[in-house]
């Protein structure tokens, strides 16, 4: 026992190094697994406050762009409304499945293999994990962690991200992933090679998951090829969204989520 203590005291620098290094390594390994990085994330109070101060300064530089986006969306919604027939107003009586919340992006990254966003809505605004995040142009990601006032979003530019999408024309569905190469191109996998593809076809969300409603725009087909076993396509999808410049986002809340969860439980 005495010798053991002596050994530790003699090599205390090495022991401390080993300890700290293994802590860091275990945190790293944990962060590479989806939904596992529990302890450290930028939605905690300290980091989010720093980001919010920085955001309050930097937001002025993007005002022109933000205004333009809002105008575009406004005009689109207005034209939709003017062309709408009166009979559809019955819809408003029915219960709404999805409700929207708006939020500001405080921190965004796109140059790493695993990217996250920090936004300024949290548990206080009844935001929970697995809510979808979109902009007026297309999808952004899924809420991954929430604190009282802030949340962290797992961007679609994350190698852990999996989103169910489909071809708008033929309704064939597959999984959207990212290979960490370019911030404007993502990969669509698991589509059978029997399907006829055309470059420029639209990709939209499938609505199979409870996170995103159907038909939210994602992007267009840029190019495609077959996978190693030559039975499935790997499709390069050019995103509608400019992921390098995000200001306002919308959070999608599925009001039927609890009901859907109870349906799932017996299967487990």
């Amino acid at each position: 026992m005495q010798q053991l203590f002596n050994f530790f005291i003699k090599n205390k620098t090495f022991v401390l190094f080993l300890l700290l290094f293994s802590i860091a390594l275990s945190l790293t390994i944990q962060s590479h697994e989806f939904h596992r990085s529990k302890f450290l994330n930028s939605s905690n109070r300290l980091t989010a406050n720093v980001y919010s101060i920085s955001h309050s300064i930097s937001q002025y530089f993007n005002l022109v762009k933000e205004n333009q986006l809002l105008l575009e969306e406004n005009s689109r919604l207005k034209s939709k409304r003017f062309n709408q027939e009166i009979s559809t107003s019955i819809d408003s009586v029915l219960k709404r499945t999805y409700s929207l919340n708006s939020a500001q992006v405080y921190k965004n990254s796109y140059a790493q293999p695993n990217n996250y966003l920090t936004i300024n809505k949290g548990l206080k605004d009844s935001i929970k994990e697995d809510y979808g995040v979109i902009t007026s142009r297309g999808i952004v990601g899924i809420i991954d962690k929430t604190s009282t006032n802030y949340s962290r979003v797992l961007s679609i530019l994350n190698t852990n991200s999996r989103v169910n999408v489909k071809l708008k024309k033929t309704n064939h569905f597959g999984t959207l992933t990212w290979d960490a190469k370019a911030p404007d191109v993502v990969q669509l996998k698991d589509i059978q090679d029997l399907v006829k593809l055309t470059i420029g076809d639209s990709i939209v969300t499938s609505g199979f998951s409870s996170t995103f409603p159907a038909n939210i725009p994602v992007g267009t087909i840029d190019s495609y090829g077959l996978n190693d076993t030559e039975d499935l396509y790997i499709i390069e999808v050019k995103l509608f969204n400019d992921m390098t410049n995000l200001g306002h986002v919308y959070l999608i809340k599925n009001n039927d989520l609890n009901e859907l969860e109870t349906l799932k439980e017996p299967n487990e």
Partner: peptide
Amino acid sequence: LFSSFLLGLMVDVFLDSGGTHAAASVL
């Protein structure tokens, strides 16, 4: 060693990168 680890860890928390900066800094 300890302050290097702490600095790396703080950078990690800000950048959502797990423990990568902490590991490299300690090393």
